[in-house]
Design a protein around this nucleic acid. Structure first.
Lengths: 135, 135
DNA sequence: AAAATCATGTAAGAAAACCTAACATCTGTT
DNA sequence: AACAGATGTTAGGTTTTCTTACATGATTTT
């Protein structure tokens, strides 16, 4: 379980990849970082490296912005969530709040849709075949 | 199910990331591509973009090289596997061959070990907290 | 309504990361 | 010894990303 969290927090993706996965501009992504909504790691050369969690957060931000929420609101929502985990011990409550903010299913659908969008569908046939052997 | 395959074939990672995940040098990775063991996609600017399947394949190559198999041998093994899926319909047999070539558990362990190695452990605390909400 | 603020676009110049091609080097084989 | 396989290294060029600064349209505040 902790293993999964580690994986989701691994800094793996350059900003170009994140742009395509989230459909956000570099300007937007950097702006959101500037306002502490994400904190991507850096290479030695100071290039940003994003994790899967970062991408999730960016997709959530995108969701909320599409719903008309401004950055202050988003920040507030995120803080509420953090607050929640700090003050309450039960998972039920946070789960409920999570649902209040945005529909989980819709979010998931949007994410996978985005993840499959654009040029990411064409991949080498050889690899496609190999994938049958390496589960 | 096809969804997972698509995800595993998405070109996402730059060579620098792959180097760290696999512990191979850029020279090695390009050499293996030159010999058709992998076929990473390219950005418009001709930079390589690797998929999870590419990384899996590279880890397998590394495995086999550590066992003393040379590229010709690896190529042969990969061809046998492809052959197998083309000629036989059952999954049992391919499964068996898979096991003959290298121990699945060992391979898995090695992969996760590599995936957690090096600088990939330090990740932002904020994100770590957020990950509890975005499963 | 004017001024300020928010969110994003755009441009410039610099630095990092990656590219190909070529040659060097080590190791094992013929 | 000569050769082939696998990898290291170097060089010059290109792509991608970086920061900083200024521009702009849309809202909000005064």
């Amino acid at each position: 379980m902790a293993e999964r969290e580690i994986r989701r927090n691994m800094p793996l993706f350059q900003i170009g990849t994140v742009m395509q996965l989230t459909d956000l501009t570099a300007r937007q992504i950097r702006y959101y970082e500037e306002h502490d909504l994400i904190s991507p790691a850096r290479t030695e050369g100071k290039r940003r490296l994003f994790s899967l969690n970062d991408i999730d957060t960016l997709l959530d931000i995108k969701d909320l912005i599409d719903q008309g929420v401004n950055l202050a609101g988003i920040k507030g929502i995120f803080n509420v969530k953090v607050q929640q985990v700090l003050t309450s011990e039960g998972k039920q409550e946070t789960e409920k709040i999570r649902r209040d903010i945005s529909n989980e299913d819709l979010r998931k659908a949007l994410r996978t849709e985005l993840l499959q969008a654009g040029r990411f569908n064409r991949s080498s046939l050889r690899q496609g075949d190999m994938s049958r052997f390496f589960h």
